[in-house]
Nucleic acid binder design. Structure first.
Lengths: 119, 119, 119, 119
DNA sequence: GTGGTCTAGACCACT
DNA sequence: GTGGTCTAGACCACG
């Protein structure tokens, strides 16, 4: 179908984020088979090399496993998934806070904004 | 003196962020003169071209004004500065929320985390 | 091939003007790929950095779009292009008139001259 | 009093233009005394060096004459003034037309616009 | 191969 | 002294 990507972030990174999100949100579950590299590439409308890189990187994060001749699967190591979830969450919040402070916004102001925006 | 830069973000971008932060936090005030291109370059330990680029970009954002042969000055257009502050804040929160949702974290979970982290 | 530049105007500005003209005149059409930075640099006989700057500036004007690893393309946003054309035209005429008045030429005199010169 | 200058054109150039305009429009007439360098500098709010340059340059154009100990005066050489006027006019129109063509605007379109704008 | 960033160093115009 | 432009050359990330 072809997806829309933000142009200021690498496509492969955005794909990793998307897949990670799917996994965290349990849209894709442990043991699920991922589409083949070529299939997925066509699906989202990017170069196969890019998807290749995505899978490779997620493998090195131990998020997915590639079984020769069978394809790629989401790891069934639940602990690993929990870890991903936690570290991702922490990263997100930490970098958000860092930015907030760099720009000198008051804390109340931000908590308030986040709450309103998120509602 | 020489500053430390994150390596995954362009130096010029980090300098823009830093200066913008200073302006928003009123560490640098409307009408203030910025260091000369060369001076600032030595100060933070980068090439003069990089600072040149920073100033030029901030000028196109109408954050600073450059007067030929005299140097660069923070705009005295307070309205413009308020706009910067607001849009920066919105951008920050918006992109944070977007990430949060992409990763499927629950809203309460996030608000809670932010509050704890920020305290 | 190597091009000739006026010496009282920055090269990058002249290149922007030239390309903008090409786009307005439809010599280059929406969706067309521009030459790569390095290619164009050799083409017109300037440094690659200069072309880089040209493309970056045109991108910020939303005249072209740069797709990572693929190159730069003329925007397909026809509305944007029309806007460019109109504002460029207005700018030209406005600044011409301003000069004319600063020098105190009579209006008839100028209309007459323009008509003769343009014929 | 302090004047406002366009920031993309040298101040000294703008001052020359302004004075030339005054002369052409006969706001300042042949033989008139110009303000002293210092006086004029304060008047328009620029550095005295800048005015110095203006006078020097206009002198080399033979538009004004400086008499030691007396000040600067507009030349009484009417022929010279007429020449200035004509060449300035031609320059203006020529460069206007050049721009118009570079951007590919049709001639009718421009004549029309100029007439409307000038009315 | 493509754009993006950065450095070092030079030269110019302006105030 | 100040900004502005340009070159040459290098290195990196992306697709």
């Amino acid at each position: 179908m072809g997806l829309d990507f933000e142009k200021d972030k690498p496509i492969y990174q955005q794909l990793i984020d998307r897949l990670s999100g799917d996994i965290i949100r349990r849209v894709r579950k442990p043991g699920d088979k991922l589409p083949s590299v070529r299939e997925y590439a066509i699906d989202v409308g990017v170069n196969a090399n890019t998807v290749q890189r995505v899978y490779k990187e997620m493998e090195s994060m131990e998020l997915i496993e590639t079984r020769r001749g069978q394809g790629s699967f989401i790891t069934e190591n639940e602990e690993r998934l929990q870890l991903l979830r936690d570290s991702k969450k922490e990263d997100l919040v930490k970098s958000f806070i860092a930015n907030v402070e760099a720009y000198g916004f008051s804390k109340d102001e931000i908590v308030e904004l986040v709450r309103r925006e998120i509602k």
